[in-house]
Design a protein around this nucleic acid. Structure first.
Lengths: 239, 239
DNA sequence: TTTTCGTGCTCTGCATGCAATTGATGCCAA
DNA sequence: TTGGCATCAATTGCATGCAGAGCACGAAAA
């Protein structure tokens, strides 16, 4: 009744994960981390769920070793809570954690916007303008999903324009948790009109290369988003 | 001629690392990460050194599994560079990386100081005042080592007073690399007088609960430190 | 009925082992 | 001599196995 007795060492060839042509060959732990991140963010693995190593390793088609490495990474990102000799759990996202999270994101994006104001290239500015048009189009068409995806790309691009790797990495690390909050606050369209206008103002400040204004506007924008999300989460609609 | 054939599974009892009474029992990977961090920061493992898994695991008295997990953590912190199928190397610290690093630290500490200005407790303020006296004493006595250790504690305390976990964690993650830069810039006493005065001003701003001033002063202070370190690193004294 | 303790099962943590990848080396051909 | 290729040795990456720590559950005692 042996289920699947694989041989001991590295598997001969058959790679189970990996969609083939995806840039540099990354290790299984990296792929597993990415996959798990997705599963946690989209709610397939709900907050508080126990992550049993053997179950997950079977589900992902890998062994426990790379899986454990992936879990360690997710723990650093704050998506997973590691407890000694106990199953890791998907981290709960309490209200005060969301507050801190958006405070931190606002701080990082403010600094990034200030740096970006002087470092952004004309090409990047052009790209931002194109994004802004697209954003307004999604808004006008009421397409919430594409709107949010684009919104994220804009914020990420602004941070990238700051040309500061540690800031960018810190920003990335906080993204996944913010995304969870965003998905749980269902009626995110409440602040929609306001949000589009704020984006317009931020773009204008960057075009004017006004560091202080860009930083302040972006930080306020993120702060407002956080507040709105917090209000959304407080509703009694825990799906 | 078997060197040390240990049995397969978890070792029976004898823990080789771990100085016994150090709070909660952490895993070997955690201890290994801390140890390696120390070895990298203090230069025992110099920049560019190859970190061969078998060698290190023997040196630390653990197996490759927890060691690999530790290396992954250090890679996230930017202390170690992971390359597929190749030995990890201790990350080099180039000049532009130092610039970015202190830019990022300045950004985080500015935000932290602004938050701390309104959140710091009287007890914490008192502690900061005590630290400041001590700092001035070390300065007067010309004790460089204790001065820097205390300096770090002050910055860390201010960030802690912001009551924001993600910011604090981001700050911690950048600390080790900043420390490397600090140790390599030997003549850090050039800016000493100035630095003490800046600390005095920062404390005053926090006492006045002037968020904007505290943030600006702290960010400038960190920026100056970074600039001075960069100048120190540029000297032809690569010890 | 409630508390305590024992027993067993489950799961993590850490160890080793095997295959693939890579860099170095030496040989052969141009 | 130099370029290219096959081979070898070193090292990573991924798999499994074994010991111990916890939790659940039930029996025994209060």
């Amino acid at each position: 009744m042996d289920p699947v007795r694989r041989p001991r060492g590295r598997p001969r060839k058959p790679v189970l994960l990996e969609p083939a042509g995806l840039g540099p060959r990354r290790g299984l732990h990296d792929q597993a981390a990415e996959r798990l991140r997705g599963l946690i963010v989209d709610g397939t693995l709900p907050a508080g769920a126990a992550l049993v190593e053997t179950e997950l390793s079977v589900a992902l088609g890998i062994s426990r070793t790379p899986l454990r490495e992936a879990l360690k990474l997710l723990a650093v990102e704050g998506l997973v809570e590691l407890r000694p000799n106990r199953s890791p759990r998907v981290a709960e996202l309490r209200a005060d954690a969301v507050t801190e999270l958006f405070e931190a994101i606002a701080a990082i994006e403010r600094a990034a916007a200030e740096l970006a104001a002087s470092r952004i290239t004309p090409a990047e500015l052009e790209r931002l303008r194109a994004y802004q048009s697209e954003l307004e189009a999604h808004h006008a068409a009421g397409e919430l999903g594409p709107y949010f995806a684009l919104n994220q790309r804009i914020h990420t691009l602004i941070v990238a324009c700051a040309r500061n790797t540690p800031l960018r990495e810190a920003h990335e690390a906080l993204h996944a948790r913010a995304e969870i909050a965003r998905r749980r606050a269902l009626d995110s369209r409440a602040r929609w009109d306001e949000s589009v206008a704020e984006h317009r103002a931020i773009l204008a400040a960057l075009e004017a290369r006004d560091a202080a204004a860009a930083g302040r506007l972006l930080a306020d924008h993120v702060g407002h988003t956080g507040t709105a999300l917090l209000a959304g989460l407080a509703r009694p609609d825990a799906a």
